[in-house]
């Protein structure tokens, strides 16, 4: 199956490495980063491109760009893994729309376009007889979208809630285990590479809220946006608060929760018994889906990382290959 990849950050590189290393039947015919692009309908030599990126900081021809790949490369699936823009979803949104309009499938890890324009993109895909899949946008390696759309098909989903942000979970875990202050735990998270220089998205609950919007819109076909979510971050938490919770055999986690029947759509620090399945350690993610037939299902796994995210993207690619086999 021929794929074109936009974005050569950690996720794009992780995907290329796996496509090169594992025998997945993926042929990469186009690659673009922020500065350059290259295409070859017979397949690009992945190892050479990774080497070029490592040495020069860009992957291909500087006279080409992502737009050229989207419109002219010979591919069946566009893999869009450029950085998230939570406000407009651009430029990824335009890339995705162009690919769908060309009758190409899209797999993305980019939260912006899905959180902003899910229903539009979904109907555009349907109109063109292709699919848009975005397993990697929520809970990293955890196959939550596959579980919801395939595994739990026929169930009525009543609620979804979980730990959707690994960075804030790491900070809370360290505050709880070592009695660190919020500032100390954040500094440690940065040193470990778990938090970005500007941790606002993570610690203020925005990243978790975007993922909650994606889950809600996908599960219930809603048109909620980030602004609909009631958000409280973890940046005002004290070590004392965690100690007080600890005295009760409880702890505090940043929980994203959507219960449409009760109008609940919120991200906030919550008190949970330490034995609760959502109390996971470090950068792990956990999500509970409550349904009418299956009851409660909780999944725990790695929420970030280049190879982990590649796992989610490859899962989507393999689904498209199997589902649309023989149609091309």
């Amino acid at each position: 199956m021929k794929i074109a990849i936009l974005g050569m950050g950690a996720v794009g590189r992780g995907l290329l490495e796996m496509a090169d290393k594992k025998d997945l039947g993926l042929v990469v015919t186009g690659i673009a980063d922020s500065k350059s692009a290259l295409m070859d309908k017979d397949g690009i030599h992945i190892d050479e491109v990774l080497e070029a990126k490592r040495v020069h900081g860009f992957c291909g021809d500087k006279s080409l760009s992502a737009v050229d790949i989207v419109s002219h490369a010979d591919y069946e699936v566009l893999v869009e893994v450029t950085p998230t823009n939570a406000t407009t979803g651009e430029p990824a949104l335009t890339f995705i729309r162009s690919a769908l309009e060309r009758g190409k499938h899209v797999v993305t890890s980019n939260k912006g376009p899905i959180a902003r324009k899910y229903s539009l993109l979904q109907s555009l895909a349907e109109k063109n007889g292709v699919s848009i899949r975005f397993e990697a946008t929520v809970c990293g390696a955890i196959p939550v979208m596959h579980t919801l759309t395939q595994g739990l098909a026929g169930n009525r989903v009543l609620a979804v809630f979980g730990v959707l942000n690994g960075t804030s979970n790491y900070i809370l875990t360290r505050m709880e285990a070592e009695g660190l202050t919020y500032e100390q735990a954040l500094m440690e998270a940065r040193e470990m590479g778990y938090a970005e220089a500007d941790p606002t998205y993570d610690v203020k609950g925005i990243d978790a809220a975007i993922k909650l919007v994606i889950l809600s819109n996908t599960i219930w076909g809603l048109d909620t946006v980030l602004e609909d979510v009631e958000i409280t971050g973890i940046d005002c938490l004290t070590t004392d608060a965690l100690r007080l919770a600890d005295d009760q055999n409880c702890t505090i986690r940043l929980i994203a929760q959507s219960i449409p029947s009760r109008g609940v759509l919120r991200v906030s620090p919550r008190i949970l018994p330490k034995t609760h399945p959502l109390v996971v350690e470090g950068t792990l993610n956990a999500v509970t889906i409550e349904t009418d037939m299956a009851g409660e299902i909780t999944m725990i796994g790695k929420g970030a990382g280049s190879v982990e995210t590649a796992s989610a993207i490859i899962g989507d690619l393999m689904f498209i290959r199997d589902h649309y086999a023989g149609r091309h």
Binding site: A159, F161, C236, C250, I252, R270, I271, L272
Partner: peptide
Amino acid sequence: LLIIEPLEEIA
């Protein structure tokens, strides 16, 4: 003030 509530039982 910041209020941290328990995660209630769903359903």
